[in-house]
Design a protein around this nucleic acid. Structure first.
Lengths: 204, 204
DNA sequence: GATAAAATTGAGTAATCATTCAAGTTTATC
DNA sequence: GATAAACTTGAATGATTACTCAATTTTATC
């Protein structure tokens, strides 16, 4: 029948993801991808269709893995607010990890891509919207659990948290000490925890 | 003697700035610049040296104009804290303005540029550091004026504000309503104002 | 108007870009 | 081992990239 793919598709995609995350869409050439994937142009195009298509698949993979880690963090904490704070504190250590970039790949893409890469741009938008929903859900859960004053707006809080994370990670892209980013994340986490209602709200 | 430059240097630089801010460094081609500046390659290179050099000058202009607006906002308010809050609220209207991009050009550059554009990257870093200093100064002034609890760290607050602004503007780059960004900025401004010490601290 | 300095032009460079496809290689099934 | 399907190869494509430079045009001064 057929020849088994010597290059695992997921593995190739992961390598492409690392490269795109580090260098961005425009600065990543097909030559770079050929080297990173150890594949010749024909194979790359047969497998992924186009540079643009490969990039979009990389975006989806990035987002999927990010969501998994997010959910995993949430599940480790019974309190929704504690889960969100823990996620922020985890991001404080982003400089200590060996990552292709400290900035979020979705944000990098959102800021880099223009009309000529509309499809990929839309993809990044869509995936960011998905993340936003998750944050909002957590704040809603916190509210249901009585952790949060019922007058606060989970939608606003979710968006604010997303903006805060975007900012933290963009800031971390600067040439700054790990300790600085840790302190920043800790400060953000404390702001979040300060929203915790002192007493569980009475349900009349 | 000489022929007077028909293209005002500042004017050309402004056009280049608009283009670079909108499309980023890599996606802006010399063809694009030729059209926007109405200059032929020879003139561009005689005037600015290289695409990279032109970009760095554009970065500097962007930062200079940004700093002017920042200082102007601060001077309009006697209270440092009120000035910072007003700047944040002003950013809430960023979607209503016709700008090349809602995201900060320095942040876009920081996230886009790699080792191959090290000089421009360093320039963006340096200019961001300059902005950070301004924010820190304002928080220090607020502390001296007794607006801020003396136990708070102006350095941390300044960095946090910069991260928050980076986040707000990156978020505003998403396909969101103007009202959403206004609400986000208002929320951030209120957080800032909530730091105001209720009473002026006693100077023992 | 002659001269010279400065500014501009635009065709041309070599390199790189994403992409294609005919030919070759590998593998599964008979 | 023959067949066929799947996969890989890599030279070639035409477009685009940043950049150069000899020739030209413009302007200031005399």
């Amino acid at each position: 029948m057929a020849r088994a793919s010597i290059h695992n598709r997921q593995d190739s995609l992961e390598r492409a993801l690392q490269l795109f995350w580090q260098k961005g869409f425009h600065a990543t050439s097909l030559k770079d991808l050929e080297k990173a994937l150890d594949m010749r142009p024909g194979s790359i195009y047969a497998t992924f269709g186009s540079k643009d298509g490969l990039f979009q698949e990389a975006l989806e993979r990035y987002s999927r893995l990010g969501l998994v880690e997010l959910e995993r963090t949430f599940q480790a904490y019974e309190s929704p607010l504690a889960g969100l704070a823990a996620y922020l504190r985890g991001l404080g250590g982003i400089c200590d990890k060996e990552l292709p970039s400290r900035a979020c790949m979705l944000v990098k893409s959102l800021l880099e891509l223009g009309e000529r890469e509309q499809a990929a741009r839309d993809k990044a938008e869509e995936l960011l919207a998905g993340m936003e929903v998750l944050f909002i859900d957590r704040f809603s859960a916190a509210q249901r659990a009585g952790e949060l004053n019922s007058r606060l707006d989970p939608v606003l809080l979710g968006r604010r948290l997303q903006a805060e994370i975007m900012g933290l990670r963009a800031f971390a892209q600067r040439d700054v000490d790990s300790a600085t980013v840790h302190a920043l994340a800790e400060d953000m986490a404390q702001s979040l925890e300060a929203m915790r209602a002192e007493e569980v709200a009475d349900t009349i």
